[in-house]
Design a protein around this nucleic acid. Sequence first.
DNA 1: GTTTGACTTGTTATCATGTAACATGAATAA
DNA 2: TTATTCATGTTACATGATAACAAGTCAAAC
Lengths: 143, 143
Amino acid sequence: MLDEARDRLAANGARLTPVRQRTLEILLESHRAMGAYEVLDRLAAEGFGRQPPVAYRALEFLVEHGLAHRLQRLNAFAACLHPGHDHAPAFLICRECDMLAELPAAPVRDALTELAAESGFQVERATIEALGLCPACAGAARP
Amino acid sequence: MLDEARDRLAANGARLTPVRQRTLEILLESHRAMGAYEVLDRLAAEGFGRQPPVAYRALEFLVEHGLAHRLQRLNAFAACLHPGHDHAPAFLICRECDMLAELPAAPVRDALTELAAESGFQVERATIEALGLCPACAGAARP
DNA sequence: GTTTGACTTGTTATCATGTAACATGAATAA
DNA sequence: TTATTCATGTTACATGATAACAAGTCAAAC
Ligand SMILES: [Zn+2]
Ligand SMILES: [Zn+2]
Ligand SMILES: [Zn+2]
Ligand SMILES: [Zn+2]
């Protein structure tokens, strides 16, 4: 996964430096959305800088290159689970267990783009995030 | 508009007190999304409290009662343009002029709900916000 | 009419999130 | 090698949000 990321970055003339790689690893390891300051604590504990821009820059870099996503609802970031092809997914966030799912949102986006077009509005970037219950938590709640 | 709001609130046993009413008026007057601190400045200048909770409480109240919406992407609030029937709209935000449009998002939501259901996920609340160009700004840019 | 209890408004204090501006060091290109 | 760009680190600050408490308002219950 990391090698793949590194290759794709190299093709774009971008480098997966130590902070950036470690940031990506941290996001991947936790398998959930993390706040920038949570990431920063981890980085600082491992000898990287301990000031906010260190984390924000690495996270911003990963988002720019499609290796991570930013979740508006949570003020948080998460590693992209399907990097590679440019994509603009929808996110499902479980309110019970914080599980995060990343779904290909083409049909939703198409519906939104069409809706917007009816008002003459051109959609460039869309945020589609849902809060609810994941299968596991829904099963536990109402078995 | 205000009278209508007051009536609907009364039916719910809630009161449109002076701070709350003034907060709603401020949102309505500006016709755009406003940060909580911007609202707070206006309130303070008119003799209301000048501490953050004053604005946050009034805004939260308005959102709870469907008179305003919160915009995740902007960390901001805007008056609801179609209050009354419960609704969960999609928002279009112009990146040039900050114009905000509020669209009935039923088709988009349906697509999202269906998509989520395929993974067994139950959607409870969804955030659908698009950034792009409004008709006026799109026309100006590429005439 | 007074008392009670829920609600509203205000405060202080603090926390969380995010960025601007600048100095230094590493990598690349000329 | 030297110039240039990019990357990392810092300080300082801006913005966004909430917890905890005190005091005032209002309407129902007595
Ligand atoms: Zn992704
Ligand atoms: Zn769950
Ligand atoms: Zn609305
Ligand atoms: Zn515009």
